[in-house]
Each structure stands twice: as structure tokens, then as C-alpha cells.
Design a protein around this nucleic acid. Structure first.
Lengths: 209, 209
DNA sequence: GTCCCGATACATCGATTCGATACATCGGGC
DNA sequence: GCCCGATGTATCGAATCGATGTATCGGGAC
């Protein structure tokens, strides 16, 4: 969903297609690459739908189309962000959603994190199944691949679990119906985390300084 | 590169499009998904190029196109497998290549592993750069995302390093010019690995029950 | 000064892939 | 006997990819 990325970035700052791509590279360069071949048609589409306004900038001498989000675009952005179809959870799409997570209501965040967790779990199950079915018929490289994939997915689930726990915690704080004013560690955990290996659920926790 | 996958699977066993997709799901289901919308055109393409032969099977009562690799297809497969363009190293394409790694010459394997390592290292550098540039302007979720990505990539590099080391070792064995008959641990390491967490270079190993 | 390079900027092209869907037939269970 | 789910082939429009073309601007080389 390129549209989501475009709307999300333009929501923060109006800019040109070229600049948009650069910013996208900065924000998600390690997860996502966009080509002009998709970006420009997408901008046109969104502009035609009334989600974006174009302004021919002459501040610089060079011609330049500065795109700005309309209120319609704002609504569209929220809709897209809210939706959690199967495809939106796939490997390269989820990082994009996470990058705009702060615009979602906490309970929606929680829901999407759990959906993603379910998805990763399914892929994990795929791997386990293929191991069970054909471990001995696999060559060394395939085995390494599966093995590494297993590890990667287990780690992602552990990571998601941390996010979910923190989210749940702060959701409680956010809606203090009968919330005990107990642990206020939640969002701080998300904000000022220390760069240490997270405690993996199925791993013995050894020390905590 | 769907073609590579198709050729690689058909090299081992001739089959129909439907079955092909299933096998692909078994082998790489957790990394790759193919739709019939891409598979059937691809099969036609390859058949038109003379890389595949079609046989209308009537062994089963149901109509069925069984595709078989020709020698031309064999050559095409090797060519595709040998190439290591930038795109072939990207996130979802590399697992596919690894699945057919055994068909490559050891030195080509080594070369491709190193290219992949370089690629991942670049993505890692992207992440580190964006951290340096904007760590304080990032919201908690983006930070988590980057952080997790950092960890994931570091682990992949460690994993690749293990594969490279094993490969190098067995390459030496494979071409015993003046090879000292020392450590013969190489391919055994790849074949009969124990399911344990590999020692990560920059992480202290704490316990092993 | 001017010449060339690299960054900025917009655009399009063909090929490929995606995702959905349609439409058959077969085997087996109930 | 009838329906369900697996097996099979096929196509459609839309989205995306990757390459490429074109032009302008700023700035350093000489």
C-alpha cells in the first residue's frame, strides 16, 4: 500500500514526489524501496481522488509539484491505516504500518499487533510443518534456511509480545476505569528502552543488572 | 524470479502447474507465495522459449499439463542461478536462490553468500544512519521497528558468516592443491548441525543447559 | 568564464506480478 | 444421491517494477 505511505508522509509535511521518495528512503529505506514508476502514478491517482492538492511551486526556479494532504486525504489515511486485511500484515507491509502507528487508537494498535502475531505464527507453523515432513530429505542449505527462518520468526514473535504487553499496559492506563495505579512502566518501556537483548519467553532469563 | 523457481522444481520432478504451486508452498511457503496469475503465464513463457516441454497427461482422467525440463531449460536454470544481480539478493529472492544452492559450484556459492552479506550490511548501515540522524525525533514505534530491524540484520550477517566459513572450509577441501588435511568439520557442520543458538559475535554466551 | 558533473525533478514504457475470480471434474463421506 | 473439498486450468484489471529519457540548476575545476 503505497498510498498509505504517501498520505502518511504528506500528513506531516507537504512535498514533491522526488522529496517524498527521499524521505521514504530515510524512514523505511531498509524495509521498503519505491520506484518513481509507482510513485508518480500513485500521486496522480490520489490527486484525482481529491485526497491531495497540487501546488506548482515557483519559490525555486525549477518547476516542482508540491503535494498537500486535504481533509479527504486525512480521512482516507485513517481508513487505510485502520484496516488490517491479511495482505497488510505481510512481511514488507507491516513495517510501513508500524511507522504510522502513533496515529492509531491504542486498542486498534493492540488489535493489529495481535493480528500480525497470528500471521507470523502461521508462517512459523509452515516452517515447522515442512521440517516435520521432510527434514531428512532436505539438503544442508535448505535446512539452514528453514532453521534461520525459524529463529527469525520466533524472535519476531517475542518482539511482538513485548510490544503487545507494553501496549496493553498503557491501554489500561489510558482508560482508567478501575485501573489500579500500579506499574507505570508501560510506555516508558517503549520510549526509553535500553539496547539490550529482550527476554525471550522460551529462554531462561539470566540476569538483570 | 519465478522462472528460477519453476525451472528448479521441474528439474527435480516433472509436474503440473497446480502441483508446482503446491510444492513451492511446501519448500518456500514461509518466504514466498506465488499466484496462478503469475505461474501460468510463466509456464507458457518458458514453454514458448523451449525451456519446457508440455505433455497432455491422460493417465489421470482429469486433463493435466505435465511440464518437463528440456536441456535448454537446464542451461537457462544454470544461467539464472549463476547470476547475482543486485535484485537477486533482495529480501525475498535470496531464500529462493538458497533453496537451489546445491546446484552451484562451491566458489559461486561463496561469491553469492558474500554478495548477500554485503547487501544486508548495506541495509544495516541504512538503519544505523537513520538512527544517528534522527533517533530523538523518532516515536517509540519507529524506534522499536528500527531496533528490531537492526537486530534481525545483525543476526542474518552472523548466520551468513557461519555459512561462509563452512563453505570456505569445504572449498579448501574440494580443491586440495596444497590443502593440509586438517579440520574436516566443514560440511558436516552444515549437514548435521545441532539446533542451538549460534554464538553471536557481539553477544556474551550465557548458558547452555 | 565555461564546462562538466551530480543532484533535483518529472515522466513514461513494457514487462511482470498480484489478487480475485471463474469454471470445470473427480473422490469420498454421509 | 448429493454436496464438499481438492485438483486443475485459465483470464482480467490493476499495481508495481526497473529502466530510461529529459531537463534544469548549483557549484567546483581549470
Amino acid at each position: 500500500m503505497l498510498e498509505l505511505a504517501v498520505l502518511g508522509l504528506l500528513k506531516e509535511t507537504p512535498m514533491s514526489g522526488y522529496e517524498l521518495r527521499k524521505q521514504l528512503g530515510v524512514k523505511l529505506g531498509a524495509f521498503w524501496r519505491v520506484s518513481f514508476g509507482s510513485l508518480y502514478p500513485c500521486l496522480k491517482r490520489l490527486a484525482a481522488d481529491g485526497a491531495l492538492e497540487v501546488e506548482e511551486s515557483r519559490f525555486t526556479s525549477r518547476k516542482k509539484h508540491v503535494y498537500r494532504l486535504t481533509s479527504r486525504g486525512e480521512r482516507l489515511f485513517q481508513e487505510l491505516l485502520e484496516s488490517a486485511e491479511v495482505h497488510d500484515l505481510e512481511q514488507d507491509r507491516f513495517p510501513l504500518r508500524l511507522a504510522f502507528f502513533r496515529y492509531l487508537r491504542p486498542e486498534t494498535r493492540l488489535y493489529q499487533l495481535e493480528r500480525r502475531r497470528g500471521y507470523v505464527q502461521e508462517r512459523l507453523a509452515d516452517l515447522r510443518a515442512s521440517l516435520r515432513a521432510a527434514r531428512d530429505r532436505m539438503d544442508a542449505y535448505t535446512l539452514e534456511l528453514v532453521d534461520h527462518g525459524l529463529d527469525e520468526r520466533e524472535r519476531e514473535i517475542a518482539w511482538l509480545d513485548r510490544l503487545i504487553a507494553a501496549e496493553r499496559d498503557s491501554t489500561l492506563r489510558g482508560t482508567p476505569r478501575q485501573a489500579p495505579p500500579a506499574s507505570s512502566q508501560s510506555m516508558k518501556e517503549l520510549q526509553a528502552r535500553d539496547r539490550e537483548d529482550p527476554t525471550r519467553p522460551d529462554t531462561k532469563v539470566v540476569s538483570s543488572p
